[in-house]
Nucleic acid binder design. Structure first.
Length: 756
DNA sequence: GAGCACTGC
């Protein structure tokens, strides 16, 4: 029986089913305990250090703002020095420092929150290792970089931004005194473009390396090359530089792969205190994991004390909201004597205020059940979780280099991911993890999640590598090589944009490509900006590209559809979605009086809520907030647009681009978009359907587009989204002549193909 | 007439 949300009859059905199933105790046999001979797993699945223990709590509850968690200012009763000595890593300090002093590479494995990230940089500094330069500690997420810097500067009893600082996009809190620099991996990578040898640093610590973000993966190669190159330079009699060390630290990872890649680097394990987690598998394979999740929630609810919270890992917003409604319905009809239940959904696109609900304790005698996406795997840490229910499924993006299509699909998690999820049950105390699959099924999961670099569009990565001066991008030293097709497809795409050219059989960066690489943008957006002065519309194009680089500024609550449509009508442009967005942005700026009221250089852009940025500091004036509410515009993302635009504008100025507005002449903006995005063009067919001009695959206008009702002859689009059909999203009306003009040779070829 | 997980520069 499917878990559906709205049908009352059906939920009653579910109640009866559950009462039959749990009330009578029939469900006791639903679960099978893990084979006792197999205790907690060990190397390599997962590595020995990955047993579960509580993370050190770095956050405190803000009194004035209920539910808000901020970095802990230190325990009043326990001095900070004592706290540091209580960390498990402290026992290993002498050996650790001795090892790190001798080694040029080390892989340190320790649990998240065990203190490795806060302590190792300090140990290095205190031991005088790498004093000649800076120690960089990279993080995949900005909040982590910010909060860790805060904690360490506090431990060093210095002002944040002096000895200890952080660098993330839009924010750099460091100075000439800074020795310990926490930063996002993307920032270090960007810095490497200007300084491939990373000469300002004596030590680079790549934290959370097991997450294998694209940035970390590229950094592996960059850091390794810089290390080798610097060693070569040190052979020159006039010795420059000093001890140079790379540490890769992570909780769960493929140790052999890492060690092998970093020249057979030694692996140091940091064991810590841990809480056991009991793992349960289902006896039989579950064909409907949502139904199984529902049964499990209520089984736990019946059997466990109400103070024990439950965290359920699911795949997305829609199924989370549906299951939440079903759970609430059933909870209302439970027999007397059963504790009440609060059901809280958690996913990234949820408004900040609602996300905060997961941190609020449930009323006494009431059980908290959190239904979450994998945001709760790494980005948000919730205390008090005693039970984890793991559906074993995740929604993940995959890229097909042949079609250029990214597909978001529900798929099995990896073993590493399943362990990560289980670990969420044992952060403060022992816990249980109910896996909605059999142990045999688990044994067949892939060991590690496929690194992002093998799943994404590589055009941006390849451009960045070229800009880093990597002589042979096709054979870059990746820890996990992307497929040759993906590399070839990316190189072809960049050639088409004019960023790369072939010289004597080698692919080299063009002058245009070099400029493109200086923008933190997808290559085609960078190209469009660089073209914009030719059409005298750089102002407009900067705004449009900024609007396209944030999540979405449009807020679409389904329940208020009519209101949304009415509010949006006044901005709608018959020329397409880009122009509509531009109209909204122009109106927003008019109301904001062009003042930097949101974001802005010196503003901290986010508060830290237990490891998750949830709101921008509310500097948005009330009037502007009201305007956003009335017009169904996401004010937080609109603030980000302003930050992005300011950054892009700075880059344009550095490149001496002429910044000017075309005013009401929107034709030139569309002309510019046609020239920048010609690869993403589609043509209306006689039968009313559309064909993408590059691959000749059938495509359709996404119903969310303002052009959905119309039938424009030619459009350029932002992206293709493959769901029930292949949809074009964010469209702009263009002339066929402009496309031909933009790439005569390319379209000459395409059109000939199209006709034949 | 659809519906998108999560990051990051």
């Amino acid at each position: 029986m499917p878990v559906t949300s709205n049908a009352c009859a059906e939920s009653i059905h579910v109640v009866t089913f559950l009462q039959r199933r749990i009330g009578a105790g029939a469900a006791i046999g639903f679960w099978r305990q893990r084979d006792p001979r197999r205790t907690m797993p060990h190397d390599p699945d997962p590595p020995p250090a990955k047993r579960f223990k509580p993370g050190s709590v770095f956050f405190r509850l803000e009194r004035n703002k209920p539910g808000m968690l901020l970095p802990r200012k230190g325990n009043v009763t326990t001095p900070i020095e004592v706290q540091r000595k209580q960390l498990p890593i402290y026992q290993a300090k002498p050996q650790l420092v001795t090892q790190l002093r001798q080694l040029s590479n080390a892989i340190v494995i320790g649990e998240t929150g065990s203190g490795k990230t806060t302590q190792i940089p300090q140990y290095l500094y205190e031991a005088g290792i790498g004093r000649q330069g800076m120690i960089a500690i990279t993080q995949p997420r900005r909040v982590a970089a910010i909060s860790l810097a805060g904690r360490v500067s506090e431990e060093k009893r210095t002002q944040l931004g002096k000895l200890v600082g952080y660098t993330v996009r839009f924010e750099d809190l460091t100075c000439s005194e800074t020795k310990l620099r926490f930063m996002t991996d993307g920032m270090l990578l960007r810095e490497a473009i200007g300084d491939p040898l990373l000469l300002r640093y004596t030590v680079v610590v790549l934290d959370e390396a097991h997450e294998r973000t694209v940035h970390t993966d590229v950094l592996f190669g960059v850091v390794k090359a810089a290390q080798r190159r610097r060693r070569e330079l040190n052979k020159i009699p006039l010795k420059v530089g000093c001890g140079w060390l790379v540490i890769v630290m992570s909780a769960t990872m493929d140790v052999d792969l890492f060690s092998e890649y970093f020249n057979k680097s030694p692996v140091l394990y940091l064991e810590g205190r841990q809480h056991p987690i009991q793992i349960y598998y289902t006896k039989q394979s579950q064909s409907d994991y949502l139904q199984a999740a529902l049964v499990s929630v209520f089984q736990i609810h019946q059997e466990a004390p109400a103070s024990h919270d439950v965290l359920v890992f699911m795949t997305g917003q829609e199924e989370i909201e549906a299951l939440a409604r079903t759970c609430r319905d059933i909870a209302k009809h439970l027999p007397d004597g059963c504790s009440p239940m609060v059901v809280i959904p958690l996913y990234a696109s949820l408004p900040p205020a609602q996300q905060l609900r997961v941190f609020q304790p449930a009323p006494k005698g009431c059980r908290k059940v959190i239904l979450s996406t994998n945001i709760a795997e790494t980005s948000v840490t919730i205390s008090g979780i005693k039970y984890v229910i793991d559906t074993g499924m995740v929604k993940a993006k995959r890229f097909n280099p042949d079609s250029g299509l990214e597909v978001l699909a529900v798929q099995r998690v990896s073993k590493a991911q399943a362990w990560q999820r289980a670990g969420r049950a044992g952060r403060e105390d022992s816990g249980s993890c109910y896996r909605l699959y059999t142990e045999q099924e688990f044994d067949n999961f892939i060991p590690m999640t496929v690194p992002e670099i093998q799943r994404c569009n590589l055009a941006g990565v390849m451009l960045q590598l070229m800009a880093l001066g990597i002589p042979d991008v096709m054979n870059f030293d990746f820890m996990s090589k992307p497929s040759p097709e993906a590399v070839r497809s990316a190189v072809e795409h960049l050639e088409l944009l004019g960023a790369l050219e072939r010289k004597n059989g080698q692919v080299v960066l063009t002058a245009l490509g070099k400029k493109m690489a200086s923008f933190p943008l997808e290559p085609r957006y960078a190209k469009t900006i660089l073209l914009s002065p030719d059409f005298s519309c750089s102002d407009e194009v900067l705004s449009i590209v900024s609007l396209l680089s944030v999540d979405t500024v449009l807020y679409n609550p389904p329940a208020r559809r009519e209101e949304v449509l009415a509010a949006r009508r006044k901005f709608t442009s018959s020329e397409g979605d880009h122009m509509t967005l531009l109209n909204i942005y122009r109106a927003f700026k008019k109301v904001s009086g062009n003042k930097v009221g949101l974001g802005g250089g010196s503003q901290r852009d986010g508060e830290v809520f237990a490891g998750c940025t949830m709101t921008r500091r509310a500097t948005c004036p009330p009037l502007l907030q009201e305007w956003c509410r009335e017009n169904f515009v996401n004010s937080r993302n609109m603030g980000l647009v302003k930050d992005v635009q300011a950054q892009l504008r700075d880059i344009c100025l550095k490149l001496n681009l002429k910044l000017e507005s075309c005013g009401a002449d929107t034709g030139s903006v569309r002309r510019c978009l046609a020239h920048g995005m010609f690869v993403n063009a589609a043509e209306l067919q006689p039968d009313g359907s559309y064909l993408a001009l590059d691959t000749h695959q059938p495509v359709a206008i996404h119903p969310s587009s303002v052009l959905f009702q119309g039938k424009p002859a030619y459009v350029v689009f932002n992206e293709l989204l493959h769901t029930s059909r292949c949809y074009m999203r964010d469209l702009c009306l263009v002339d066929a002549d402009w496309l031909l003009d933009a790439a005569p040779e390319y379209f000459g070829r395409k059109l000939r193909l199209s006709k034949s």
